[in-house]
Amino acid sequence: MEGKTFFIDLTRCTACRGCQIACKQWHKLPAEKTYNWGSHQNPKDLSYITYKLVRMEEVVDKNGHIKDWLFFPEQCRHCVEPPCKMAADDYDEKAILHDEATGSVIFTERTKKLPFDEIKDACPYNIPRQDPKTGMISKCDMCIDRVQNGLLPACVQTCPTGAMNFGDRDEMIKLAKKRLAEVKKTYPKAILGDVDDVRVIYLFQEEPEKYYQFAVASLEQKNLLTRKELLANVFSPLANLKL
């Protein structure tokens, strides 16, 4: 399969949030007005001006002792067969574009006219967000402008630890599988998320549901059965959790 792919090795992520800030910087996105809500995770959620967010989850053992602090740099997965586009095409084929060379899924200004709920529900990862003022729907664009000019996406460029990787899809899948084999020795539950279906492949050291409700598509489908499941028939839960 061609195009580009991210490989995000969560065993290496230190939640420095360089990626979160670099994304804002490159896209010239304004800061949100936040407050400390009893967590370091901030903003609390993705928004139409926050495309990349490092989620932080504490895992506590039965004695109440901290066992793990899991970090999940969340972004659009750039699905190989993007269900958001399938949903959008019913209304306007130019609202959501699917770049052939990279596989990037791009929301254009014409998303303003799309029914937001349908687009949102189509996404198994709960990614699209809408600007309440303009109605435009937005999310990660794979830094398509950078990538087309031979640069790495801003989040990948800034990552100090090698958690964020980006390149040709076959190479990234090879790297992901190699890392999985290594990491399994330390983390027997390690798993790659939705390898065949997405262009943002996460390597989880623990069960994906511990990171975030929508970490992998199958989880979401387990939790919520909506019409997007029908639309996004491409996702087969068992096949997605291949080792």
Binding site: R17, Q20, I21, K24, Q25, P30, A31, E32, K33, T34, Y35, N36, H40, N42, P43
Partner: peptide, 12 residues
């Protein structure tokens, strides 16, 4: 720096 303040806005 607004982006940094967004991530850690307050004394905790």
């Amino acid at each position: 720096q607004p982006w940094l303040l967004e991530a850690e806005p307050q004394l905790f």
